[in-house]
Amino acid sequence: MIALRERALISLDSTPSLPNHVRIQFDPVRQAYAVLSPERVFWPNEVSLAILNRCDGRSPVSAIISSLATEYDAPEDEMTGDVTAFLQEWANKLLVRP
Protein backbone atom coordinates (compact mmCIF):
# COMPACT_ATOMS: atom_id res chain seq x y z
CA MET A 1 0.00 0.00 0.00
CA ILE A 2 1.16 3.48 -0.73
CA ALA A 3 0.68 6.11 1.90
CA LEU A 4 -0.61 8.98 -0.17
CA ARG A 5 0.59 12.42 0.69
CA GLU A 6 -2.09 14.82 1.61
CA ARG A 7 -2.41 18.40 0.63
CA ALA A 8 -1.28 20.43 3.59
CA LEU A 9 -2.99 23.64 4.56
CA ILE A 10 -1.01 26.49 6.03
CA SER A 11 -2.15 27.58 9.48
CA LEU A 12 -0.62 29.92 12.05
CA ASP A 13 0.90 26.86 13.75
CA SER A 14 2.53 25.40 10.63
CA THR A 15 6.32 25.48 10.58
CA PRO A 16 7.08 25.88 6.87
CA SER A 17 10.40 24.94 5.32
CA LEU A 18 11.89 24.85 1.86
CA PRO A 19 11.91 21.36 0.31
CA ASN A 20 15.30 20.09 -0.84
CA HIS A 21 14.50 20.75 -4.49
CA VAL A 22 14.19 24.49 -3.79
CA ARG A 23 17.17 26.72 -3.17
CA ILE A 24 17.55 30.44 -2.57
CA GLN A 25 20.81 31.97 -3.66
CA PHE A 26 22.33 35.28 -4.58
CA ASP A 27 23.12 35.62 -8.28
CA PRO A 28 26.20 37.82 -8.71
CA VAL A 29 25.53 38.26 -12.45
CA ARG A 30 22.09 39.83 -11.95
CA GLN A 31 22.76 41.16 -8.45
CA ALA A 32 19.54 39.64 -7.15
CA TYR A 33 18.31 36.68 -5.12
CA ALA A 34 16.99 33.78 -7.16
CA VAL A 35 14.80 30.88 -6.06
CA LEU A 36 15.88 27.80 -7.98
CA SER A 37 13.44 24.91 -8.51
CA PRO A 38 13.39 21.93 -10.90
CA GLU A 39 12.11 23.73 -13.97
CA ARG A 40 11.85 27.34 -13.01
CA VAL A 41 13.78 30.23 -11.55
CA PHE A 42 11.84 32.81 -9.54
CA TRP A 43 12.93 36.35 -8.71
CA PRO A 44 11.21 37.13 -5.40
CA ASN A 45 10.67 40.72 -4.34
CA GLU A 46 12.00 41.92 -1.02
CA VAL A 47 9.00 40.88 1.09
CA SER A 48 8.63 37.46 -0.57
CA LEU A 49 12.31 36.87 0.05
CA ALA A 50 11.94 37.91 3.68
CA ILE A 51 9.11 35.37 4.10
CA LEU A 52 10.98 32.55 2.35
CA ASN A 53 14.15 33.20 4.36
CA ARG A 54 12.16 32.69 7.54
CA CYS A 55 10.87 29.26 6.41
CA ASP A 56 13.39 27.37 8.52
CA GLY A 57 11.15 24.47 9.56
CA ARG A 58 11.18 25.64 13.20
CA SER A 59 9.42 29.01 13.23
CA PRO A 60 5.62 28.85 13.24
CA VAL A 61 3.80 31.08 10.77
CA SER A 62 2.63 33.27 13.65
CA ALA A 63 6.25 34.00 14.62
CA ILE A 64 7.18 34.67 11.00
CA ILE A 65 4.38 37.21 10.82
CA SER A 66 5.41 39.02 14.02
CA SER A 67 8.99 39.17 12.89
CA LEU A 68 7.95 40.63 9.51
CA ALA A 69 5.60 43.08 11.21
CA THR A 70 8.50 44.36 13.29
CA GLU A 71 10.89 44.56 10.38
CA TYR A 72 8.46 46.34 8.05
CA ASP A 73 6.73 48.29 10.79
CA ALA A 74 3.29 47.09 9.70
CA PRO A 75 0.32 45.90 11.77
CA GLU A 76 0.37 42.14 12.30
CA ASP A 77 -3.30 41.54 11.59
CA GLU A 78 -2.94 43.23 8.20
CA MET A 79 0.01 41.02 7.29
CA THR A 80 -1.55 37.73 8.42
CA GLY A 81 -3.78 37.23 5.37
CA ASP A 82 -1.09 38.14 2.86
CA VAL A 83 1.60 35.99 4.41
CA THR A 84 -0.56 32.89 4.82
CA ALA A 85 -1.95 33.30 1.29
CA PHE A 86 1.58 33.60 -0.08
CA LEU A 87 2.74 30.50 1.80
CA GLN A 88 -0.33 28.52 0.75
CA GLU A 89 0.27 29.44 -2.89
CA TRP A 90 3.88 28.31 -2.68
CA ALA A 91 2.85 25.15 -0.82
CA ASN A 92 0.33 24.38 -3.57
CA LYS A 93 3.20 24.48 -6.05
CA LEU A 94 5.30 22.27 -3.74
CA LEU A 95 7.84 25.06 -3.37
CA VAL A 96 7.23 25.38 0.38
CA ARG A 97 6.69 22.43 2.70
CA PRO A 98 3.98 23.35 5.22
Binding site: L4, R5, E6, R7, A8, E39, A91, K93, L94
Partner: peptide, 9 residues
Protein backbone atom coordinates in the same frame (compact mmCIF):
# COMPACT_ATOMS: atom_id res chain seq x y z
CA UNK B 1 -7.37 17.27 -7.28
CA UNK B 2 -3.63 16.91 -6.66
CA UNK B 3 -2.80 20.55 -5.95
CA UNK B 4 -0.06 20.62 -3.32
CA UNK B 5 0.52 16.88 -3.69
CA UNK B 6 1.84 16.39 -7.20
CA UNK B 7 2.74 19.13 -9.66
CA UNK B 8 1.51 18.13 -13.09
CA UNK B 9 3.06 20.04 -15.98
Amino acid sequence: RLTGILNID
